[in-house]
């Protein structure tokens, strides 16, 4: 583990800012970039990298969701139901991470990074489907005003067991690898459960705070969370995601997604190479 100096804190702050900015632009969390940087480039143990990243996930979730409440984009009820599964997953993942070898966690990260790359490229031009606004959303469904299309979107939640399973998996992976897990939940909710993309993303972003807390608490209790660097990363990610949201529409998101998918493929390969010692 490297010595903690103001220079190192500045580097971690910068890495957080870049990860947060990319996360905001790409609509994914920054954890998938931050964890490999801390683990592979700065040589922190995988668990320390995951722990720091989880604190940034919590901060991003709280900050983003605080600004979104009142717009009905976050489906509170669906979120509360699925959190039962995500937090169970993150509890399990946090406990399991204590027993797994670093090489196992790196291999797992390699797989997930490759999956994120594929998901990012395959959903590059995805838009919302507008459903009949007079439809009954049911207990778990929702209704929100969609700025992109200028209409009211109403949806019902289908196949709840699928959503619960994806959420459990997302929570488990979140704790083990230090990412939010939205990359698993959002496509599942959107593709199989009838939740429009923006509502799925907003609800997922809302859930990952409490999910990441389930894992972060365990790392913190085991002394694997380095407070000063977590602080640097959290502040960096907040600055980064704030800037990312400001740049927003002006950024060439399509090209950025392709570029970052390529970066993730490289990250995935590096994780496998390192895992073999």
């Amino acid at each position: 583990m490297p010595l903690i100096t103001p220079t190192l804190a500045a580097i971690v702050f910068g890495a957080g800012a870049v990860a947060g900015g990319l996360g905001a632009l790409l609509g994914i969390g920054g954890g998938v970039f931050l964890v490999p940087f801390l683990n592979l480039a700065l040589n922190f143990p995988f668990t320390a990298a995951a722990a720091i990243s989880l604190t940034t996930v919590i901060a991003t979730s709280s900050a983003v969701s605080a600004g979104r409440t009142g717009k009905h984009l976050i489906n509170l009820r669906l979120g509360m139901v699925l959190e039962v599964a995500t937090v169970a997953g993150s509890l399990l993942g946090g406990v399991t991470a204590q027993f797994l070898a670093q090489s196992t966690l790196q291999k797992l990260f390699g797989i997930v990074a490759a999956v994120v790359a594929v998901v990012m490229v395959s959903r590059i031009g995805r838009r919302n489907v507008i459903l009949d606004p007079s439809a009954d959303p049911g207990v778990l469904g929702g209704r929100f005003y969609d700025e992109e299309s200028g209409g009211v979107v109403t949806y019902r939640v289908k196949k709840l067991p699928v959503a619960l399973f994806a959420s459990f998996l997302a929570g488990d992976v979140s704790s083990l690898l230090g990412i939010g897990g939205g990359v698993i939940k959002v496509p599942a909710l959107n593709a199989w459960c009838g939740v429009p993309l923006r509502a799925a993303a907003a609800t997922s972003a809302f859930m990952i705070g409490v999910t990441a807390t389930g894992g972060a608490v365990i790392y913190y209790g085991h002394g694997q969370l380095i407070p000063s660097l977590a602080a640097a990363a959290v502040l960096g990610v907040q600055v980064g995601s704030w800037s990312g949201l400001r740049i927003g529409d002006r950024a060439p998101v399509r090209w950025l997604k392709l570029l970052m998918a390529a970066v993730l493929v490289v990250v995935s390969a590096l994780m496998f190479i390192h895992s073999r010692g």
Partner: peptide, 13 residues
């Protein structure tokens, strides 16, 4: 239930 699971995390911590 979510609160109880979080309490479980605290216990594991």
């Amino acid at each position: 239930i979510v609160l109880l699971e979080l309490a479980g995390s605290l216990l594991a911590a």
